[in-house]
């Protein structure tokens, strides 16, 4: 999906097109894989939090004060970051 295609989907309120694009991106061209990848990063985030380790809330507050573009980009980076620490890393040809 090119940028113009995405912009059109946003203008049309066509969330299905947008999420399909996200799945393709996160799944390296496979929607099915992308769906699983999205689940994986949420599973990893939940697993990390289950032990009540201390959280740097100041850092989070400072981060959330940043601009939306940086935060949205961070959201994508965190997705990959959470999966990369696991055995389930499928990118870069190790699939």
């Amino acid at each position: 999906m090119s940028t113009s295609y995405l912009r059109q989907a946003i203008a049309d309120g066509d969330d299905e097109k947008i999420i399909r694009f996200v799945r393709l991106h996160l799944g390296d061209g496979s929607e099915k894989v992308g769906r699983r990848e999205i689940d994986k990063s949420w599973v990893e985030a939940t697993k990390v939090l289950v032990d009540y380790e201390p959280i740097d809330r100041d850092a989070i507050e400072k981060t959330l004060a940043l601009d939306d573009a940086t935060l949205a980009s961070l959201f994508f980076q965190l997705h990959f970051h959470l999966i990369k620490r696991t055995d389930g890393w499928i990118h870069e040809g190790s699939r």
Binding site: D28, G29, F80, H91, E92, G93, S94, R95
Partner: peptide
């Protein structure tokens, strides 16, 4: 540093 193609070799 890339995600979209196999570069293990």
């Amino acid at each position: 540093h890339q995600l979209k193609f196999p570069h293990d070799d």
